[in-house]
């Protein structure tokens, strides 16, 4: 358990809080982005060791004690997928706005507090 894992858990909690408490679709999109960032930092921090070096070889000597390259590879692809899905979500939000004229979930449903 290092400081970065703690940070990622904080960001995950903030993202879940935003998803539950906000009623505006755009704010939910921002909360989902924060949540995704927290998950990415959590995955990389699992492979982190305190005295590790970056996983890149320099040809004459062998690498000693690198950090784990596998979570980094996973997160690298996850970030690129994340921008695609966020763009898809924002396109759907634009479509909802054109159809209903509002992005507030509570006014759509007509429920009271």
């Amino acid at each position: 358990m290092n400081l970065y894992t703690f940070t990622s858990l904080l960001l995950i909690a903030i993202g879940v809080y935003g998803l539950l408490s906000q009623r505006h679709l755009f704010k939910m999109l921002v909360s989902l982005s924060v949540l995704e960032l927290g998950v990415n930092i959590l995955l990389v921090s699992i492979g982190y060791s305190k005295d590790g070096v970056a996983p890149i070889l320099t040809p004459p000597e062998q690498i000693i004690n690198p950090v784990d390259p596998l979570p980094q590879a996973l997160v690298l692809t996850a970030i690129v997928i994340g921008v695609g899905t966020t763009a898809l979500m924002s396109a759907i939000i634009v479509k909802i706005y054109k159809r209903t004229g509002t992005l507030d979930l509570s006014s759509n449903r007509g429920e009271d507090e």
């Binding site: 996983p55 890149i56 690198p66 596998l70 980094q72 997928i81 899905t85 898809l88």
Partner: peptide
């Protein structure tokens, strides 16, 4: 020399093909 590249493209190359496909699906959407 870059171990992350070695994981992404050599050991897990098929996963990367799937990932690029997901990106294509998102752009199509």
């Amino acid at each position: 020399a870059n171990l992350v590249t070695s994981v992404v493209l050599s050991y897990r190359g098929l996963d990367t093909l799937g990932e690029v496909t997901v990106l294509f699906a998102a752009a199509t959407g």
